[in-house]
């Protein structure tokens, strides 16, 4: 399996000054799951302060977004096919699931959506294809 788009996410997000500015009021710890691999993402004032991969017992998160590896890789294609082009399209199609306290997600929805889509614009869209 090629490496996940989440591996380099912190650098890519933190280099995007407009995106960091958009998230400047957000401090949140959330979880994304790529297939079987959890990524624990800590956002502080719009920067990704930390991403750690792998199981971590008793670690808490505000909200979690889980999708299959296939779904994330299709989502990160330069021009994703219908149904794989948006976080909620993935959810409606049964390819992703969102859980937890959704208030910080919905209050910062554009920021979170753009963070998750960052691998699409960073030249990693092939992801093993």
């Amino acid at each position: 399996m090629a490496k996940s788009g989440f591996e380099d996410l912190a650098d890519q997000v933190n280099r995007n000054s407009a995106l960091v500015h958009r998230g400047r009021f957000l401090d949140v710890d959330f979880l994304v799951v790529d297939g079987d691999t959890p990524y624990w993402i800590s956002v502080r004032e719009g920067r990704i302060a930390e991403i750690s991969a792998g199981q971590a017992l008793l670690r808490s998160w505000a909200f979690a977004i889980r999708a299959t590896s296939e779904a994330w890789r299709t989502f990160w294609q330069a021009t994703p096919p219908p149904g794989f082009h948006d976080l909620f399209a993935l959810c409606k199609g049964g390819h992703a699931k969102i859980e937890g306290d959704l208030q910080p997600l919905m209050a910062n929805l554009r920021y979170i959506k753009e963070v998750l889509a960052t691998p699409r614009t960073s030249g990693l869209e092939d992801h093993g294809r």
Binding site: T79, P80, H85, D86, L87, F88, A89, Q103, M106, A107, L109, R110, K113
Partner: peptide, 20 residues
Amino acid sequence: PDIHGGEVCAALISGLVAPQ
């Protein structure tokens, strides 16, 4: 009151625009 209505509406429907 704890979520900006315009921002969340736009962010929600943004995915309904085609990538092209």
